[in-house]
Computed example of a mutant assay.
Amino acid sequence: MENDSSRKILGSVWFWIAVAGVVMLCGVFYFIGSYTAKVDLHGKKASLDELVKEIEEREVLLGELKNKTESQTKEVADIQEELQEMEKEKNDALQIIENKSRAEEEMKELQKQVEKSSKELRDLTEEIKTKKAELAAAEGKIVEKKQEPKILSAGFFTVGKDLPVGRYKVVAQSGFGNFFVNSGSKVNVILGDSEIGVIEYVFYADEGDEIELTLAAKFIPVE
């Protein structure tokens, strides 16, 4: 009986020892789990929940950065497109300026050619007039100028004052009468349709010559 009681007591002691060991082992495991559940986050120990929360916050921040990056990428693309358009406008403007400069140069060249041609035409015209005058002189003909004739009535006149210096063909306006230059020392004729006079008379009027007319006469400039 004593042996049975001793065995029972001994079994009960071992039971409680085993229970105490299990409790201690659970405490050790909890301590180990609690310790290992902590990680180093920014130099501090963080729990699993804190780590999960931090990861979620980082994911949100990453999403915001991604959206911001996409927005900035679009803005950059828009700016590049605007720059390309401005570059095209600049090139078009430069082309217009270049075309204008080329046109101005061509215009200047044409102007030079026109001036050269005009000078050549004037020279040719003068040459033709000279040849005509020479031909007329050779044939005894008088070439009238395109200037307006000067009509002087009967009276006294001074060359350079009443009549410009030059060569003239003098024709009576009507009837007949005397035509004197320098009191007849230079010209002394009867103008008019008369058997004793002449229908026209050609002379060179020099500066200061004195003209005397007893009839109205037309002074026609000639070559």
Rank of each mutant, 00 (worst) to 15 (best):
K116R: 13
L48W: 13
G208W: 03
A103F: 00
P221W: 02
V76T: 14
Q95Y: 00
E144V: 06
K45T: 10
G27S: 11
K38N: 15
A216G: 08
E2L: 14
V23D: 09
F180W: 06
K74D: 07
I79H: 10
A93Y: 02
R122L: 05
V23H: 15
G11N: 10
G33T: 15
E115W: 02
K38W: 04
N178W: 08
Q72Y: 07
G27Y: 11
N178D: 13
G63A: 07
S194Q: 13
W14R: 06
K119M: 13
D123E: 12
D4P: 00
P221S: 09
P164L: 11
G166N: 06
E127S: 13
L124A: 10
Q95M: 00
D162T: 04
E195R: 11
K38D: 05
D209Y: 03
V143F: 01
V39H: 12
A20H: 03
I9S: 05
W14A: 09
K112F: 13
I199W: 05
V76S: 11
T73A: 07
L213G: 03
K132S: 06
E57L: 06
T130Q: 09
Y204C: 02
K74S: 12
I9K: 12
D209K: 08
I79S: 07
G166I: 03
I17N: 14
G155P: 02
D162Q: 04
F15L: 15
S118W: 01
G11Y: 08
S194D: 15
D40E: 15
E195C: 02
E89Y: 08
K169I: 08
L121F: 14
L65A: 07
S153V: 06
T130K: 07
I32E: 08
V159E: 00
R102S: 05
V170A: 03
L110N: 10
N182D: 10
L124W: 02
I96L: 00
F203L: 14
R58V: 13
Y204K: 11
H42T: 11
E85L: 10
K108F: 05
E57M: 13
M1P: 01
G160T: 02
A93G: 02
I199K: 04
E200M: 09
A77M: 09
N182A: 08
E85W: 09
E104W: 05
